[in-house]
Protein backbone atom coordinates (compact mmCIF):
# COMPACT_ATOMS: atom_id res chain seq x y z
CA UNK A 1 0.00 0.00 0.00
CA UNK A 2 2.85 2.34 0.87
CA UNK A 3 6.31 1.91 -0.52
CA UNK A 4 9.17 4.20 0.39
CA UNK A 5 12.33 3.79 -1.64
CA UNK A 6 15.55 5.54 -0.69
CA UNK A 7 13.56 8.31 0.94
CA UNK A 8 15.64 11.23 2.15
CA UNK A 9 14.47 14.54 3.54
CA UNK A 10 16.87 17.32 4.35
CA UNK A 11 16.12 20.71 5.78
CA UNK A 12 18.28 23.73 5.37
CA UNK A 13 18.11 25.86 8.44
CA UNK A 14 20.45 28.72 9.22
CA UNK A 15 22.91 27.55 6.61
CA UNK A 16 23.16 24.10 8.12
CA UNK A 17 21.85 20.98 6.46
CA UNK A 18 19.77 18.71 8.68
CA UNK A 19 19.02 15.22 7.42
CA UNK A 20 15.71 14.40 9.07
CA UNK A 21 15.04 11.25 7.03
CA UNK A 22 18.00 9.29 5.77
CA UNK A 23 17.66 6.75 2.95
CA UNK A 24 14.60 5.04 4.35
CA UNK A 25 13.15 2.00 2.63
CA UNK A 26 9.83 0.86 3.96
CA UNK A 27 6.99 -1.33 2.85
CA UNK A 28 3.58 -1.09 4.45
CA UNK A 29 1.03 -3.67 3.38
CA UNK A 30 -2.68 -3.15 2.87
CA UNK A 31 -4.61 -3.46 6.11
CA UNK A 32 -1.55 -2.98 8.31
CA UNK A 33 -1.62 -0.84 11.39
CA UNK A 34 1.94 0.23 11.17
CA UNK A 35 3.66 1.95 14.08
CA UNK A 36 6.71 4.15 13.81
CA UNK A 37 8.41 4.88 17.13
CA UNK A 38 11.42 6.95 18.01
CA UNK A 39 12.53 9.70 20.34
CA UNK A 40 11.89 13.37 19.66
CA UNK A 41 13.80 14.56 16.62
CA UNK A 42 14.24 11.07 15.19
CA UNK A 43 12.49 12.19 12.02
CA UNK A 44 9.15 10.44 12.47
CA UNK A 45 6.97 13.39 11.53
CA UNK A 46 9.16 14.22 8.58
CA UNK A 47 8.86 10.64 7.36
CA UNK A 48 5.10 10.59 7.78
CA UNK A 49 4.66 13.97 6.13
CA UNK A 50 6.57 12.70 3.12
CA UNK A 51 3.87 10.05 2.68
CA UNK A 52 1.37 12.66 1.48
CA UNK A 53 4.02 15.09 0.32
CA UNK A 54 3.24 17.74 2.92
CA UNK A 55 7.03 17.65 2.96
CA UNK A 56 8.65 17.28 -0.42
CA UNK A 57 11.31 14.58 -0.22
CA UNK A 58 14.84 15.63 -1.12
CA UNK A 59 15.40 12.27 -2.78
CA UNK A 60 13.64 8.97 -3.16
CA UNK A 61 10.26 7.63 -4.10
CA UNK A 62 6.94 7.62 -2.31
CA UNK A 63 4.48 5.14 -3.76
CA UNK A 64 1.01 5.11 -2.24
CA UNK A 65 -1.58 2.73 -3.63
CA UNK A 66 0.57 2.17 -6.71
CA UNK A 67 1.03 5.87 -7.48
CA UNK A 68 4.45 7.51 -7.29
CA UNK A 69 3.53 10.81 -5.62
CA UNK A 70 6.71 12.74 -6.36
CA UNK A 71 6.04 12.47 -10.10
CA UNK A 72 2.54 13.93 -9.98
CA UNK A 73 1.47 17.38 -11.12
CA UNK A 74 0.04 19.76 -8.53
CA UNK A 75 -3.51 18.92 -9.52
CA UNK A 76 -2.90 15.15 -9.59
CA UNK A 77 -1.29 15.35 -6.17
CA UNK A 78 -4.28 17.25 -4.82
CA UNK A 79 -6.59 14.48 -6.05
CA UNK A 80 -4.32 11.76 -4.63
CA UNK A 81 -4.33 13.46 -1.24
CA UNK A 82 -8.09 13.05 -1.06
CA UNK A 83 -7.41 9.34 -0.73
CA UNK A 84 -4.81 9.77 2.01
CA UNK A 85 -6.38 10.75 5.29
CA UNK A 86 -4.42 12.43 8.04
CA UNK A 87 -4.99 13.18 11.71
CA UNK A 88 -2.90 15.41 13.92
CA UNK A 89 -1.68 15.68 17.48
CA UNK A 90 -3.42 19.02 17.95
CA UNK A 91 -6.46 18.02 15.89
CA UNK A 92 -6.24 21.09 13.61
CA UNK A 93 -10.00 21.54 13.38
CA UNK A 94 -11.53 24.64 11.83
CA UNK A 95 -12.53 26.63 14.92
CA UNK A 96 -15.07 28.78 13.11
CA UNK A 97 -17.02 25.79 11.82
CA UNK A 98 -19.25 23.30 13.61
CA UNK A 99 -18.39 19.62 13.86
CA UNK A 100 -20.64 18.83 10.90
CA UNK A 101 -19.17 21.69 8.86
CA UNK A 102 -15.65 20.49 9.61
CA UNK A 103 -16.44 17.08 8.19
CA UNK A 104 -18.35 18.63 5.30
CA UNK A 105 -15.29 20.69 4.39
CA UNK A 106 -13.32 17.59 3.44
CA UNK A 107 -16.23 16.30 1.37
CA UNK A 108 -16.42 19.66 -0.40
CA UNK A 109 -12.68 19.54 -0.97
CA UNK A 110 -13.19 16.29 -2.84
CA UNK A 111 -15.95 17.83 -4.94
CA UNK A 112 -18.81 15.80 -3.46
CA UNK A 113 -22.23 16.84 -4.67
CA UNK A 114 -23.91 19.32 -2.34
CA UNK A 115 -27.01 17.21 -1.78
CA UNK A 116 -24.95 14.14 -0.82
CA UNK A 117 -22.96 15.91 1.86
CA UNK A 118 -25.39 16.06 4.82
CA UNK A 119 -26.15 12.34 4.58
CA UNK A 120 -22.50 11.38 4.43
CA UNK A 121 -21.63 13.71 7.33
CA UNK A 122 -24.28 12.01 9.43
CA UNK A 123 -22.93 8.59 8.55
CA UNK A 124 -19.41 9.59 9.53
CA UNK A 125 -20.41 11.26 12.80
CA UNK A 126 -22.39 8.16 13.65
CA UNK A 127 -19.32 6.02 12.99
CA UNK A 128 -17.20 8.04 15.41
CA UNK A 129 -20.04 8.37 17.93
CA UNK A 130 -20.56 12.12 17.72
CA UNK A 131 -23.95 12.38 16.08
CA UNK A 132 -25.29 14.42 19.00
CA UNK A 133 -22.45 16.93 18.75
CA UNK A 134 -22.96 17.84 15.08
CA UNK A 135 -23.74 21.49 15.80
CA UNK A 136 -21.07 22.06 18.44
CA UNK A 137 -18.00 24.15 17.78
CA UNK A 138 -14.59 22.54 18.37
CA UNK A 139 -14.00 24.77 21.40
CA UNK A 140 -16.97 23.07 23.07
CA UNK A 141 -15.50 19.57 22.73
CA UNK A 142 -13.07 17.53 24.81
CA UNK A 143 -9.75 16.43 23.35
CA UNK A 144 -11.00 12.93 22.63
CA UNK A 145 -14.10 14.28 20.90
CA UNK A 146 -11.96 16.65 18.82
CA UNK A 147 -9.83 13.76 17.66
CA UNK A 148 -12.97 11.85 16.74
CA UNK A 149 -13.98 14.75 14.52
CA UNK A 150 -10.46 14.64 13.09
CA UNK A 151 -10.89 10.96 12.31
CA UNK A 152 -14.36 11.44 10.82
CA UNK A 153 -13.13 14.10 8.44
CA UNK A 154 -9.94 12.18 7.60
CA UNK A 155 -11.88 9.14 6.45
CA UNK A 156 -14.68 11.13 4.81
CA UNK A 157 -13.52 10.46 1.27
CA UNK A 158 -12.84 6.74 1.75
CA UNK A 159 -9.05 6.98 1.79
CA UNK A 160 -6.78 4.00 1.27
CA UNK A 161 -4.48 5.14 4.02
CA UNK A 162 -4.77 7.02 7.28
CA UNK A 163 -1.69 8.84 8.54
CA UNK A 164 -1.63 9.62 12.25
CA UNK A 165 0.97 11.98 13.67
CA UNK A 166 1.02 11.53 17.47
CA UNK A 167 -2.74 11.30 17.33
CA UNK A 168 -3.09 10.40 20.98
CA UNK A 169 -0.18 12.29 22.52
CA UNK A 170 -2.35 15.16 23.71
CA UNK A 171 -4.86 12.83 25.35
CA UNK A 172 -5.09 11.16 28.74
CA UNK A 173 -4.61 7.37 28.95
CA UNK A 174 -8.29 6.55 29.04
CA UNK A 175 -9.16 8.74 26.09
CA UNK A 176 -6.12 7.40 24.25
CA UNK A 177 -7.48 3.93 24.68
CA UNK A 178 -10.88 4.85 23.27
CA UNK A 179 -9.30 6.56 20.26
CA UNK A 180 -7.11 3.52 19.64
CA UNK A 181 -10.20 1.33 19.86
CA UNK A 182 -11.87 3.50 17.26
CA UNK A 183 -8.86 3.31 14.95
CA UNK A 184 -8.80 -0.45 15.33
CA UNK A 185 -12.49 -0.62 14.50
CA UNK A 186 -12.06 1.54 11.40
CA UNK A 187 -9.11 -0.56 10.30
CA UNK A 188 -11.25 -3.68 10.45
CA UNK A 189 -14.46 -2.22 9.09
CA UNK A 190 -12.97 -0.34 6.16
CA UNK A 191 -9.82 -2.41 5.69
CA UNK A 192 -7.97 0.86 6.00
CA UNK A 193 -4.19 0.90 6.20
CA UNK A 194 -3.07 2.99 9.17
CA UNK A 195 0.35 4.49 9.75
CA UNK A 196 0.80 5.72 13.25
CA UNK A 197 3.62 7.72 14.74
CA UNK A 198 4.19 7.69 18.45
CA UNK A 199 6.80 7.79 21.13
CA UNK A 200 4.75 5.52 23.34
CA UNK A 201 5.35 1.82 22.93
CA UNK A 202 2.07 1.28 24.78
CA UNK A 203 0.24 2.53 21.72
CA UNK A 204 2.15 0.16 19.46
CA UNK A 205 1.46 -2.73 21.79
CA UNK A 206 -2.21 -1.84 21.83
CA UNK A 207 -3.02 -1.72 18.13
CA UNK A 208 -0.12 -2.15 15.72
CA UNK A 209 0.72 -5.32 13.89
CA UNK A 210 4.05 -4.03 12.60
CA UNK A 211 6.48 -1.50 13.94
CA UNK A 212 9.58 0.38 12.85
CA UNK A 213 12.01 1.99 15.25
CA UNK A 214 13.61 5.22 14.10
CA UNK A 215 16.77 6.97 15.20
CA UNK A 216 18.53 9.91 13.53
CA UNK A 217 16.45 9.62 10.39
CA UNK A 218 17.07 5.91 9.90
CA UNK A 219 14.96 2.87 10.58
CA UNK A 220 17.12 0.80 12.89
CA UNK A 221 14.74 -2.09 13.36
CA UNK A 222 11.52 -3.22 11.79
CA UNK A 223 9.21 -6.19 12.10
CA UNK A 224 6.06 -7.76 13.48
CA UNK A 225 5.09 -6.32 16.82
CA UNK A 226 5.24 -9.58 18.72
CA UNK A 227 8.58 -10.44 17.24
CA UNK A 228 10.02 -7.02 18.09
CA UNK A 229 8.68 -7.16 21.63
CA UNK A 230 9.89 -10.65 22.29
CA UNK A 231 13.22 -10.44 20.55
CA UNK A 232 14.48 -6.89 20.12
CA UNK A 233 17.85 -6.66 18.40
CA UNK A 234 18.77 -3.04 18.93
CA UNK A 235 19.39 -1.42 22.28
CA UNK A 236 17.13 1.48 21.29
CA UNK A 237 14.30 -0.94 20.64
CA UNK A 238 14.96 -2.53 24.00
CA UNK A 239 14.77 0.90 25.63
CA UNK A 240 11.34 1.43 24.20
CA UNK A 241 10.10 -2.00 25.13
CA UNK A 242 11.44 -1.71 28.64
CA UNK A 243 9.03 1.16 29.15
CA UNK A 244 6.14 -1.21 28.63
CA UNK A 245 7.72 -4.25 30.23
CA UNK A 246 9.14 -2.10 32.95
CA UNK A 247 9.78 -3.50 36.39
CA UNK A 248 12.09 -2.70 39.19
CA UNK A 249 13.29 -4.72 42.09
CA UNK A 250 13.99 -2.90 45.31
CA UNK A 251 17.72 -2.29 45.61
CA UNK A 252 17.64 -3.76 49.06
CA UNK A 253 16.39 -7.04 47.67
CA UNK A 254 19.13 -7.20 45.03
CA UNK A 255 21.81 -6.49 47.62
CA UNK A 256 20.54 -8.69 50.42
CA UNK A 257 19.83 -11.77 48.35
CA UNK A 258 22.57 -14.34 48.58
CA UNK A 259 21.58 -16.30 45.49
CA UNK A 260 21.80 -15.73 41.75
CA UNK A 261 19.07 -13.54 40.33
CA UNK A 262 17.86 -14.44 36.85
CA UNK A 263 15.16 -13.16 34.56
CA UNK A 264 13.41 -15.90 32.61
CA UNK A 265 11.50 -14.94 29.51
CA UNK A 266 8.56 -16.73 28.12
CA UNK A 267 6.61 -16.38 24.96
CA UNK A 268 3.50 -17.46 23.14
CA UNK A 269 1.69 -20.21 24.96
CA UNK A 270 4.58 -22.33 26.22
CA UNK A 271 4.32 -23.83 29.65
CA UNK A 272 7.55 -22.30 30.91
CA UNK A 273 6.53 -22.64 34.50
CA UNK A 274 6.57 -26.42 34.33
CA UNK A 275 9.89 -26.31 32.50
CA UNK A 276 11.38 -24.16 35.20
CA UNK A 277 10.31 -26.34 38.08
CA UNK A 278 11.57 -29.46 36.25
CA UNK A 279 14.97 -27.90 35.67
CA UNK A 280 15.32 -26.68 39.22
CA UNK A 281 14.44 -30.03 40.60
CA UNK A 282 16.86 -31.90 38.36
CA UNK A 283 19.68 -29.57 39.38
CA UNK A 284 18.96 -29.44 43.06
CA UNK A 285 18.55 -25.72 42.99
CA UNK A 286 15.99 -23.79 44.94
CA UNK A 287 14.01 -21.11 43.18
CA UNK A 288 12.24 -18.18 44.74
CA UNK A 289 10.05 -15.99 42.55
CA UNK A 290 10.68 -12.27 43.13
CA UNK A 291 8.72 -10.71 40.32
CA UNK A 292 6.66 -11.59 37.29
CA UNK A 293 4.84 -9.85 34.47
CA UNK A 294 2.83 -10.92 31.48
CA UNK A 295 1.74 -8.64 28.66
CA UNK A 296 -0.64 -9.74 25.96
CA UNK A 297 0.47 -8.53 22.59
CA UNK A 298 -2.17 -9.19 19.99
CA UNK A 299 -3.55 -11.83 22.31
CA UNK A 300 -0.26 -13.72 22.63
CA UNK A 301 1.36 -13.67 26.03
CA UNK A 302 4.80 -12.26 26.47
CA UNK A 303 6.36 -12.10 29.86
CA UNK A 304 9.08 -12.93 32.31
CA UNK A 305 9.68 -13.81 35.83
CA UNK A 306 12.53 -12.93 38.04
CA UNK A 307 13.85 -15.64 40.35
CA UNK A 308 16.44 -15.99 42.96
CA UNK A 309 18.29 -19.29 42.59
CA UNK A 310 20.15 -20.77 45.52
CA UNK A 311 22.30 -23.87 45.69
CA UNK A 312 25.78 -25.08 44.82
CA UNK A 313 27.61 -22.79 42.40
CA UNK A 314 28.00 -25.51 39.75
CA UNK A 315 24.44 -26.62 40.10
CA UNK A 316 23.16 -23.09 39.70
CA UNK A 317 25.30 -22.54 36.58
CA UNK A 318 24.05 -25.79 35.16
CA UNK A 319 20.47 -24.79 35.88
CA UNK A 320 20.94 -21.42 34.20
CA UNK A 321 22.40 -23.09 31.10
CA UNK A 322 19.54 -25.56 30.98
CA UNK A 323 16.93 -22.86 31.45
CA UNK A 324 18.48 -20.80 28.69
CA UNK A 325 18.13 -23.76 26.39
CA UNK A 326 14.59 -24.68 27.27
CA UNK A 327 12.90 -21.30 27.68
CA UNK A 328 12.73 -18.19 25.54
CA UNK A 329 15.84 -16.91 27.24
CA UNK A 330 17.51 -16.25 30.55
CA UNK A 331 19.23 -13.12 31.62
CA UNK A 332 21.45 -13.18 34.70
CA UNK A 333 20.77 -10.03 36.65
CA UNK A 334 23.05 -10.79 39.55
CA UNK A 335 25.54 -13.63 39.42
Amino acid sequence: MIELIGLTKQYRSRGKMITAVDEVNLHIAKGDIYGIVGYSGAGKSSLLRCMNLLEKPTRGEVVVNGVELTKLSKEELRLSRQKIGMIFQHFNLITSKTVAENVAFNLKAAGKKKEDIPGRVKELLDLVGLLDKADYYPAQLSGGQKQRVGIARAIANDPHVLLCDEATSALDPKTTESILELLKEINKKLNLTIVLITHEMEVVKEICNRVAVMESGRIVEEGGVYQIFSDPKESLTRDFIDKVMQFSLPDRLMKSSSGTIVKILFREAKAEEAVVSDVLQSCQVKGNILHGKIEYIQDAPLGFFVMELTGEREEVDKAVALLDEKTAGVEVMKP
Binding site: N52, L54, R78, L79, S80, R81, Q82, I84, M86, F88, H90, N92, L93, I94, T95, F105, N106, K108, A109, A110, R153, A154, N157
Partner: peptide
Protein backbone atom coordinates in the same frame (compact mmCIF):
# COMPACT_ATOMS: atom_id res chain seq x y z
CA UNK B 1 -3.35 28.22 12.86
CA UNK B 2 -0.93 26.81 10.26
CA UNK B 3 -2.03 23.32 11.24
CA UNK B 4 -5.58 24.02 10.10
CA UNK B 5 -4.34 25.17 6.69
CA UNK B 6 -2.15 22.11 6.52
CA UNK B 7 -5.07 19.82 7.31
CA UNK B 8 -6.96 21.36 4.40
CA UNK B 9 -4.00 20.87 2.06
CA UNK B 10 -3.70 17.27 3.23
CA UNK B 11 -7.40 16.85 2.45
CA UNK B 12 -6.74 17.88 -1.14
CA UNK B 13 -8.70 21.13 -1.02
CA UNK B 14 -8.26 23.66 -3.83
Amino acid sequence: DKGVIEAAIAAGAK
